[in-house]
């Protein structure tokens, strides 16, 4: 028997963890740009803040998009609910609240992550120390995920943990594309110019896919290829298609043995249908921005429906 509050705690614990990992990835991609092309740094940082949905909060605290300010805001600032530290703390609080639903390995991995990051992020992170801190965040996320996979029963609790992970990941990937969609538009005509190659690479880098893209696509990135890869390629673990499959699988597991299909399953199938059989070139021509806005809204609706269907709240 799973309590509604436990399902809520697990679902959000893994949303927070996934989000913190994505934040670290975004900062890593930004750092890369800042290192290679110092002049468009500010633009890059501003799109990172915007992807995190924190533009207003950031500008209220910082005069402009400078390296130190952005890194501090995204990694350490506790007044920013999507900073890595805030997220890890929220994830750990949830883990404490659902302690009995976790194996001791998952709990200890989460607790250790919190302890290590709290000490690594105690003081502002200097330029030269950033790669190490980002590496630590990535490593710890992998550790928690490994503990989850290696030790948790494949039961309903596991399903809620996974639903949180993939809903959040789908949302993050969609947001990255949304902020950068103009880079992929055909109307931006400097095709082949170095500026766009770097921009495209940044998109791939923010989902840690710069190498897998090359492997699978045997060639230079191009807008349609990138859109296809991030939206429709079921082999790529941060793509929309992949996340949708996982969401469906976990919802179906939760529904097995139940009398009637839940509204959330219907919404998830709707989301999957909106991707099925689509062609990336058509999507780009019909309007990438609208397409992604639609997906983001579907993901939001699905998340809220899961919370209702499974009685997260009284």
């Amino acid at each position: 028997m799973v309590l509604g509050r436990t399902a809520d705690g697990l679902f959000w614990m893994f949303r927070y963890l996934e989000r913190s990992e994505n934040t670290a990835r975004l900062v890593a991609a930004g750092l890369r740009i800042a290192l290679t092309r110092s002049r468009s740094g500010a633009e890059e940082w501003s799109s990172i803040i915007s992807t995190a949905g924190a533009t207003d909060a950031f500008l209220a605290r910082h005069p402009g998009y400078e390296f130190d300010g952005v890194v501090d805001f995204m990694l350490r600032d506790r007044s920013n609910p999507s900073s890595v530290m805030s997220l890890i703390e929220a994830a750990r609080n949830n883990a404490r609240a659902v302690r009995t639903a976790l194996t001791s390995e998952v709990w200890e991995a989460t607790n250790e992550t919190w302890m290590l990051l709290r000490s690594a992020l105690k003081a502002p992170v200097k330029h030269h120390g950033l790669p190490e801190v980002l590496g630590l965040i990535r490593k710890q996320s992998a550790y928690v995920r490994g503990a989850l996979h290696g030790t948790m029963l494949r039961n309903e609790m596991f399903n809620f943990a996974r639903l949180g992970t993939f809903l959040e990941r789908a949302d993050n990937t969609a947001r990255i594309l949304d902020v950068k969609y103009y880079v992929l538009l055909p109307s931006v005509v400097h095709v082949g110019a170095p500026i766009d190659n770097v921009q495209w690479e940044t998109i791939l880098r923010s989902v840690s896919a710069e190498h897998s893209y090359d492997w699978l696509n045997e060639g230079d990135p191009n807008p349609a290829g990138i859109a296809r890869f991030l939206l429709l390629d079921g082999r790529m673990p941060r793509s929309m298609a992949f996340c949708c499959d996982q969401i469906l699988e976990n919802l179906r597991h939760l529904e097995s043995g139940q009398h009637a299909p839940s509204p959330s399953l219907a919404l998830a199938e709707g989301l999957a249908d909106s991707l099925r059989g689509r062609d990336a070139k058509d999507v780009l021509e019909e309007g990438l921005h609208d397409f992604i806005q639609e997906i983001i809204s579907r993901i939001g609706k699905l998340g809220r429906q899961i919370e209702t269907d499974y009685r997260f709240h009284a």
Binding site: M1, V2, L3, R5, R311, A314
Partner: peptide
């Protein structure tokens, strides 16, 4: 709770229903 295999409950999980104390699970 973990060691006993018992539910760990908070007041917000519980309510009175049909003369019993009932906990809110994902199925009711």
């Amino acid at each position: 709770a973990d060691q006993m295999g018992a539910e760990l409950l908070e007041g917000q999980d519980l309510r009175v229903a049909d003369g019993r104390i009932a906990m809110r699970t994902i199925r009711g």
